[in-house]
Structures are given as C-alpha cells and as structure tokens.
Amino acid sequence: MVNTPQQQRELRSKLGRVRGLGSTREGVHHWWAQRMSTVALIPLSLWFVYSLITLTGSDYEHVRAWAEHFGNAVLLVLLIVTMFHHAQLGLQVVIEDYAHSEVWKMGLLLFVKYGAVLFAASAIFAVLKLSLAG
C-alpha cells in the first residue's frame, strides 16, 4: 500500500476509526449512560420528594413502615443505584475538567468512584435491613 502524505499524517489506525471509539476508547458510552440515568431520575426523584413531604414529622415506626412497603423498598433501591451512578458520572467530568495534575485527578476519581459504590451499597443494605428485618 502506498503511503500518501495524507495517510502519513493520520496516526489513528483504520480499525480504530471504524470502531469510532475515539482517543478515550469508550466512544459515547459515558454520554449515553448519563442521559439514560437522567431520564430514570426524573420520576424517581419526584417520587422521592413527594415521599419526604408525606413523611415530614413522622416518628421512627412510621418511617420504618414506609420503607418496609414492597413498592417503596424497590423504588428506594432503584433511586439509590441510579442516583449514585449518575452522581459519579457527573463528578468524573467535573474532576477531569478542573483537576489538572494527574495525581490529583486519579486520586479524586478513585475517591469518587469507590465512594459512590460504598455509599450505594450501604444505602441499599439499609433499605433491605429495614424492609426484611420486620
């Protein structure tokens, strides 16, 4: 194959171009995941705000009974998973934009990504404990 000047300047392989994943090797995956979680969070967060309004002034037993309810427990788990997924995707972009040193960037990304999993796991376990223990 003859290397024209045009081809010599193109450092990306032809396979790489066809796959269309770009320099970060993940294509539109991050963008798409952010949008999918956004759509799910619209009804979930509105349900959550409404629930908190109706729970205002409630005692422990009342809140517990609310969390024990099958539908509420399922929606809580869905909210927790989607919310923390969405949060870590968004925080990742903020960190990548503003943390200019590689050490800071990697440190903060690890903190946010692992933190999101830790808090999500704790919140889900709390919902399961509330809804299954009784």
Binding site: V63, A67, I80, F119, S122, A123, A126, V127, L130
Partner: peptide, 8 residues
C-alpha cells in the same frame, strides 16, 4: 445514605 443507615 446517613439518614437511611441511621433508620436501619
């Protein structure tokens, strides 16, 4: 999360 865990 803190609120949920405290309830648990």
């Amino acid at each position: 999360t803190y609120w949920l865990v405290s309830a648990a």
